[in-house]
Design a protein around this nucleic acid. Sequence first.
DNA 1: AATCACTCCAACCGCGACAAT
DNA 2: GATTGTCGCGGTTGGAGTGAT
Length: 265
Amino acid sequence: MGRSPCCSKEGLNRGAWTALEDKILTAYIKAHGEGKWRNLPKRAGLKRCGKSCRLRWLNYLRPDIKRGNISHDEEELIIRLHKLLGNRWSLIAGRLPGRTDNEIKNYWNTTLGKKIGAQPTNQSRLKSKPPIDHKPTAIEPEAAPAQPQVIRTKATRCTKVLVPTDPPPRLSEPRPIDSTTPQNPLQAQPQQTHSVAPWGPTDFTPDYGTITNSNLFNEDYSYSNLLENVTPFKFEDWASNDCLENNAALDLDSLAFLLNSEEWP
DNA sequence: AATCACTCCAACCGCGACAAT
DNA sequence: GATTGTCGCGGTTGGAGTGAT
């Protein structure tokens, strides 16, 4: 494609961030919000490139970040989601509140990859080292498939969202799934990007075609994300949360079903 | 105590996708 | 439709920390 570098690297700090830089970045984002990463360093007075600022904020400075001690539940969820999604760390991280894609990726490469006998993504560094002390664990699949089926979802950006002033009507009944509706909402749906919210102000017609595999997961203003924003849920109860009385809930139920399914790879 | 081997994780890099022009 | 700018993602690397010899 031929891209110019994201920023001139001359005169910029690199490597580990100092406490002062962290403080400046945090203060700036608290005052002005996230975004406009390219201009942020200049405005904030940081000698860093915008990308670096973004990464530092997202992976380390964000106030909602949970650090360390990945619980057994989280670990299990990561493994299941990885089976389902492959190395889509951002999507996996999206289902683990407070965890970052980088953290999950690192955790996978250093811990889980060995635990479940999968190839770490960082093969160049680990290829010469066989997994040490590889003992079966409770979460280890008995016979890992040679080629796990991975659904290649695609996260898309959705920057323009029309949010109706009225909330979507609550559905009293789940929509019957007809023969043309994929049983797996993560599968077989053409990629769609919404320029408006999936419901209309007066015409809310739930459809698996409007909640797609991508916007089910991405962090944009997707329907499911809006619901999450209204009622944040913990992943432990994400499939049973009462606030999800609509097709987003169905999608989450479907996902929960898939993750719990023995047949799913 | 010194050295080596290895692990872990923060940070960097390159690229693709999308929006704006 | 082509080009340019920006953002976000996944892969990779550097180096600090730690354990083994």
